[in-house]
Design a protein around this nucleic acid. Structure first.
Length: 882
RNA sequence: GCGGGCGUGGUGGAAUGGUAGACACACAGGACUUAAAAUCCUGAGGGGGUAUCCCCGUGCGGGUUCGAGUCCCGCCGCCCGCACCA
């Protein structure tokens, strides 16, 4: 590109004022119903959704980032001529509302609805292209009655069960938690150490779908690999053998057999003990007559399940005095221990230990002096000298010391053992049975809380548990509840639970447990397809919209919400509410918003708003805004109230405008990574906004002043500018489709730079350049529209374009302008760039070679020698090897 | 321990095996201004040479290749997830 002279005149344009323009355009979109979507639109559908917010009171920067990304996708596909569904709702049930009720004497419903109203205003101030006519809140009977209806459908379809089981009890929130909600032995919300309690609970039979949920992960190719791996691990499939060990008769126990599960039946000849879980029924039976064992069991229970506890825990056991017969070594027996590392929840709660090939078993065997017999010889090891020391051997190899298995591979041995036991029985049970085990447990959904969807069940002493007849739905939460004491307000409500049995009419009791809030969020995306229907969905409509094409949210939901939703969608399919298995075709997990932390000399956290940063060269110093005392700049952390490093979106929107906040959230950092919120970054985004406005104003000014009336054909500069503009459209399109917003932003900057440079001389240049400038600016505004929609509308209007830029079709790209007729080829000598030549595109290699060898630099570097080899990659690069 | 990801200027980050550092932030110099802000122009990976130029450079060590930030092998470091799962 030529170097242009300084701009030829100044424009006295006013600054762009987002505070004035943003509300104005929001009103225009609203009145034009721009983003209201119709089901009967023939265009191709596109469903984009961001994870809906919990109405905590105010939106935070994480929301801004999340919804900015979704909005770009929505607006882009709209411009691409698709019928785009982009709805918003509220995940409105949950504990914080009850906590607020307890702390502030405000009803959870009032608190929640007030928060929704405030947050809706905040979201609206962002200018999101959302169809607000589809808004739903999970706490309203209009929503949860359908969830209750589906609960009954699931119950009838055998997808719900009620069973007594050991559950995770959160002593602070006074409720049961699902396994997925226990993190490191603590409640996911309260952080309290979780206790085990026996309770009768309602369960969704998610484990019925374990295999399908696992296998279908392979079809979710538009999901992050990380999330798929996490779900795969959570489902935790393992294939193995259920084995019966015959108990050697004694006066110690009545049991005649012990059942274990193993994934390594091949190592059976290396077995040297059997171990029971402290929670195993046989353990309990034995402990009844053995105080020392009872004490050992109690000690195991105290051990805890926290990460550190497990890492440090020593393998400990208690010998029961019982022996079992070795299943493949006649006359040999194995001692039976109770061991602290055997889990009742997995397999059968009992194992056989093969110390040579399992680290835990080895640690245990060394401690209790049990035999360590290697039975797998690793490939390449010497059979004569091979021995197991402190590390168990887990790699594959060849069977040794294993009777009829000797010489087989591990896999072959597994099959041979299974075949060996196939026809045999112990204690009337098959001695060995091939079995697939999953770690995934059924989903316990009963919560002993008020602010959730009531489980539509009536307990009748005569008839048992009876579903509430659908005509009686919804089971509405009573309003008059108290929160002045712990426990479930529904349970102590004076009248609510007292009902008559719908079958026999006798006095009966309503179920007072409510559903886990994760049930609410497991199908809201389906409800959005028919938010006002009097059935959970309208299947034909749901099937037209589903699956969600692009779902965007935080990775913290990788297991909980995303796995539950996959299950729930399958259950809805089984009961005829939707026709798809998978709810989310594409998933994107965005990174967090971080900020520097600040601490006062007293060691207290200080909010960014109270800190002044002084820069001296590259040094930065922080001072307190009011007191002037020095502030320590700390590490960069996720924005959180506890560290006070939060920036309020309202303040940013109020001072810089929503477009600036949106733009900054999309710039720089790749969307899957964390982004650091900085004042400088926001300033930069704001400056860019003004820069665009200046460019547009100048372009308009130049057009007015231009005396040109005849359209001339493009000169080189005009053509170059058109190329840049078309290329930008092409690249930005690809980047948005690939969700590479940071790169799209960079492309837009480049186009802007080129246009600003060009505008400086357009007034005195040939008319073709003015035309290219005008066209380029219009394209720029369109590229900008998904990201800075208010600014784009303002510019669009100023440029005299008709209609809204939000309704304008995405600009077309002339493919001819994407290709260069000339290419610059770098010339490498031994892989290092030494020169370059400009040749016509498609120049033959031989011609390129000739040109290269005639270059002064190359002649000099060859120093009279002939090159060993010349590699010419047409239109790309040349490498001369000397 | 297992699984996944990452490591590039002062900073955030670009780079279908083909000119490393696009774009932005921060910084420096200059123009404009009474001044400041804003704006515009210029510079910049490190080292050396007053121009043109040379050497080094993507965590470390090897390898494949005409050519490696990118692919392979072995290390080091950081982040995330799961975890006594038999």
């Amino acid at each position: 590109m030529a170097v242009y002279p300084l701009r030829t005149y100044q424009v006295s344009g006013e600054r762009y004022n987002p505070r004035e323009m943003e509300p104005r355009w929001q009103k225009v979109w609203d009145e034009a119903k721009s983003f209201v979507v119709r089901d009967d639109d023939a265009r191709e559908k596109y469903y984009v959704l961001e994870m809906f917010p919990y109405p905590s009171g105010r939106i935070h920067m994480g929301h801004v980032r999340n919804y900015s990304m979704g909005d770009v996708v929505a607006r882009y596909h709209r411009a691409r001529g698709k019928n785009v569904l982009h709805p918003m709702g509220w995940d409105a049930f949950g504990m914080p509302a009850e906590n607020a009720a307890m702390e502030r004497k405000v009803h959870p419903g009032a608190w929640t609805r007030q928060n929704i109203s405030a947050m809706k205003d905040q979201l609206k101030s962002m200018g999101l292209a959302i169809d607000w006519t589809r808004e739903i809140a999970t706490c309203e009977p209009e929503y949860y009655q359908h969830q209750q209806a589906m609960f009954i459908d699931f119950l009838e379809a055998g997808l719900v069960t009620r069973k007594k089981s050991k559950v995770n009890w959160d002593p602070v929130d006074m409720t049961v938690l699902a396994n997925e909600q226990v993190i490191d032995g603590r409640g996911w919300r309260s952080g309290a150490l979780v206790e085990q309690r026996e309770l009768t609970q309602w369960f969704f039979k998610i484990s019925d779908f374990a295999e399908d949920l696992l296998e279908a992960l392979d079809t979710l190719t538009d999901w992050p690999e990380k999330v798929r791996v996490m779900q795969r691990n959570w489902i935790g499939k393992s294939e193995g053998l259920r084995l019966q060990f015959e108990v050697v008769p004694s006066d110690k126990a009545d049991a005649s057999s012990i059942e274990v599960f193993t994934t390594r039946p091949d190592t059976i000849f290396g077995a040297s003990f059997v171990a029971l879980s402290p929670d195993h029924p046989l353990t309990t039976e034995l402990a009844a007559n053995d105080p020392a064992l009872a004490e050992f069991v109690a000690e195991c229970r105290r051990q805890g399940t926290a990460t550190e506890a497990i890492e440090k825990a020593e393998k400990k056991g208690y010998f029961t005095q019982i022996h079992v017969k070795h299943p493949v070594k006649p006359d040999a027996t194995l001692p039976v221990y109770v061991a602290n590392f055997v889990l009742m929840e997995y397999g059968t709660g009992a194992i056989f230990g093969c110390p040579a090939h399992d680290q835990r078993d080895l640690d245990f065997a060394r401690k209790y002096d049990l035999p360590v017999v290697p039975v797998v010889l690793p490939t390449g090891a010497d059979a004569a000298t091979f021995a197991v020391a402190d590390e168990a051997v887990v790699e594959p190899g060849t069977m040794i010391n294993s009777g009829f298995l000797d010489g087989l591979s591990v896999d072959a041995a597994k099959q041979a053992v299974a075949a060996q036991f196939a026809g045999l029985t112990v204690d009337g049970k098959p001695q060995g049975k091939v079995e697939v085990n999953y770690r995934l447990r059924d989903w316990g959904i009963s919560r002993q809380r008020y602010w959730g969807a009531p489980i539509p069940i009536i307990h009748c002493e005569v008839c048992g548990t009876i579903p509430v007849p659908k005509k009686d739905l919804p089971v509405v939460l009573p309003e008059d509840v108290t929160f002045d004491q712990p426990g479930n307000p529904l349970d102590r409500h004076p009248t609510w639970k007292h009902v008559h049995c719908p079958q026999c009419g006798a006095s009966a009791r309503r179920e007072t447990d409510t559903m886990d809030t994760f049930v609410d969020s497991s199908w809201y995306f389906s409800r959005f397809t028919a938010p006002h229907a009097d059935t959970p969905t309208i299947p034909a409509v749901a099937n037209a919209w589903l699956p969600v094409d692009q779902y965007i949210g935080g990775v913290e939901h990788a297991i909980l919400h995303l796995l539950y939703s996959r299950f729930f969608t399958r259950a809805m399919k089984a009961t005829g509410h939707v026709g798809v298995d998978e709810p989310f075709k594409g998933l994107f997990t965005q990174g967090m918003v971080t900020h520097e932390t600040y601490k006062s000399p007293a060691g207290e956290w200080v909010a960014p708003a109270e800190v002044v940063i002084e820069t001296l060269g590259e040094d930065r110093k922080a001072l307190h805004l009011h007191s002037g005392e020095p502030i320590t700049i700390g590490s960069i952390e996720k924005m959180s109230k506890s560290k006070k490093n939060v920036v309020d979106p309202d303040e940013i929107v109020g001072s810089y405008g929503a477009d600036t906040a949106r733009w900054f959230m999309l710039s720089d950092s790749p969307p899957e990574r964390d982004v650091q919120w900085t004042e400088a970054g926001v300033e930069g985004a704001s400056r860019f906004q003004q820069r665009i406005w200046r460019l547009v104003s100048e372009t308009i000014e130049i057009t007015k002043q231009s005396a040109h009336s005849v359209r001339e054909s493009d000169d080189d500069e005009a053509k170059a500018l058109r190329k840049i503009a078309h290329r930008a459209v092409h690249n930005v399109s690809q980047d948005i489709e690939g969700l590479r917003f940071n790169r799209a932003v960079a492309q837009i900057y480049e186009l802007t730079n080129a246009l600003v440079r060009s505008s400086g001389i357009a007034a005195v240049a040939p008319s073709s350049r003015l035309s290219a400038l005008e066209d380029g600016v219009a394209r720029l505004i369109q590229l900008l529209a998904p990201m800075m929609p208010h600014l784009a509308e303002t510019c669009w209007e100023a440029l005299g374009k008709s209609g809204l830029v939000a309704d304008a079709p995405w600009p077309e790209v002339d493919p001819a302008l994407l290709v260069d007729d000339q290419v610059t080829m770098p010339i490498q000598v031994n892989g290092k760039r030494r020169a370059e030549i400009v040749v016509a595109k498609g120049t033959a290699s031989a011609e390129v070679e000739r040109l290269v060898l005639s270059l002064d630099e190359i002649v000099r570097m060859l120093d009279g020698n002939a090159p060993k080899k010349i590699v010419v990659v047409p239109d790309r690069i040349v490498n001369v090897v000397v």
